[in-house]
Design a protein around this nucleic acid. Structure first.
Length: 433
DNA sequence: TGAAATGTTGGGGCG
DNA sequence: ACGCCCCAACATTTC
């Protein structure tokens, strides 16, 4: 007689506390089997074996597994395609239901549709919950029922609507007794799933309240630790967005705005899926981009001759993270100075950023390129030297990431600022007329 | 969540 | 005292 179970499928919510889907699974009436799948459909597209994100996930799963073992259960970690894994689970257990949290990205939607079909054909339900944002696709709409495309009115409506109900925690800990009792299950090493260890750091999930408090004064200075650096935890769900939003609301509305941007871009991606691969404003797809691969390579490596740009790219390459102010500078530089397609930059960030999230990354790049909803106007061209004067006047950030930096011997810029600025204005103008 | 070009104003040097 | 020029400082417009 096979055991009747509910599965809880961890994906971008690698935590036990305040987890919506897990909470509902634990209250479903069946014992809960916690699982994670290293999705071969995703892993097979990654370049190289030393991938910080895969390592990050693996190490986080190790911790999650230990926590579940302390509770008398365990985490089953699979490697394969989700469809194969569920076929296997259906053959081994009497699977009544699979619980998981919403994932809004195009691949994830398609994947979940298939899984739901498979489960339904086998008498099991597929139940999904909102967990990774405060308001999802259709919860904050204009009065005419259409989605917002401008941030400020969206954020206003968001703030009107938010209340304790939307920010309260799911008390999963009350129901941990409903986890399936398990013997220690095998846990494949990174090498066994085809990857290698990296130097990735697992940051603390503790929220630094002082940072949030002083956020507005310090967030633009890349040489100091003035941003929360929680994007990675939000990406993998090692921190709850409800908990963080609650703290932001109590501490600093300016910081809360950053979290609202996150909901905003997720909502945009849902309603306007053409932003993946195309400009939100179609006329921006008429821009005749340069195709200078040497320039692109120089940008990637941090060898543009503009110290602030080079510092940012080197920080990204070394750590998988870049300060937000500098992300704007390097993105403006790629799209305006080098006049290279924003999708090139988007793809490079997608490859390198530990906190990579399709919706925010796409939104940010289209903002910089001017092609997005509520984007920077095309004629807003960052001057790298002025950005340095304003935000890194002591050159502390630059010297940290470009140790060989000396003003007199630094390589010459690969493009002249004045020339590049005028070229960008001309090129954009003729595409948009 | 820009920057550059252009316009205006006003103080000071000077004839 | 006055006009003229220079130019910094600030404001406005333009891209």
């Amino acid at each position: 007689m096979k055991q009747e179970v509910s599965v809880f499928w961890f994906r971008r919510d690698l935590r036990l506390d305040d987890n919506a889907g897990l909470y509902h699974a634990l209250r479903s009436g069946n014992s809960v089997l916690p699982i994670f799948i290293f999705d071969e459909n995703i892993l097979s597209k990654l370049e190289g074996k030393a991938d910080k994100r895969v390592d990050f996930i693996h190490r986080t799963l190790e911790q999650l597994k230990a926590q579940l073992q302390n509770l008398g259960s365990d985490l089953l970690v699979f490697h394969g395609t989700p469809l194969e894994v569920y076929k296997k689970l259906l053959s081994e257990y009497s699977l009544k239901a699979v619980f998981t949290n919403h994932d809004y990205e195009p691949y994830a939607c398609e994947r979940d549709k298939r899984i739901e079909e498979l489960l339904n054909e086998n008498g099991a339900s597929f139940q999904t919950f909102k967990d990774q944002c405060i308001f999802e696709k259709d919860e904050v709409l204009k009065d005419d029922g259409k989605p917002y495309t401008v941030y400020t009115p969206y954020s206003k409506k968001w703030k009107e609507k938010v209340n304790a109900f939307y920010l309260s925690s799911y008390p999963t800990e009350k129901y941990f007794g409903n986890l399936l009792k398990l013997e220690t299950a095998n846990f494949q090493s990174l090498e066994e799933i085809g990857f290698e260890k990296t130097d990735v750091e697992i940051p603390s999930s503790e929220v630094e309240l002082d940072i949030i408090k002083n956020y507005h004064d310090t967030r633009d200075i890349p040489s100091i630790h003035g941003t929360s650096r929680l994007s990675v935890q939000l990406r993998f769900g090692t921190i709850s967005i409800r908990k963080l939003s609650r703290m932001a609301q109590e501490t600093n509305g300016k910081f809360l705005n950053e979290l609202i941007w996150r909901d905003f871009y997720m909502m945009i991606l849902w309603h306007f899926p053409h932003v993946v691969g195309g400009a939100f404003k179609p006329q921006y797809d008429q821009i005749a981009w340069e195709r200078n691969e040497k320039h692109f390579e120089a940008w990637c490596k941090g060898e543009t001759g503009y110290p602030i740009v080079d510092a940012g790219m080197r920080e990204l390459n070394e750590t998988g993270w870049m300060h937000n102010r500098v992300r704007m500078v390097v993105a403006s530089f790629l799209t305006k100075h080098l006049l290279l397609d924003w999708r090139w930059g988007e793809a490079y960030f997608a490859k390198k950023l530990l906190d990579f999230e399709l919706s925010s990354n796409n939104g940010g790049w289209q903002w910089a390129a001017g092609s997005g909803c509520d984007a920077a106007p095309y004629f807003r061209v960052f001057n790298p030297d002025l950005q340095t004067q304003k935000f890194d006047p002591q050159l502390k950030y630059i010297k940290k990431w470009v140790p060989d930096f000396q003003e007199l011997t630094y390589p010459r810029p690969i493009v002249d600022h004045k020339f590049a600025r005028e070229r960008a204005l001309d090129r954009y103008k003729s595409a948009l007329k």
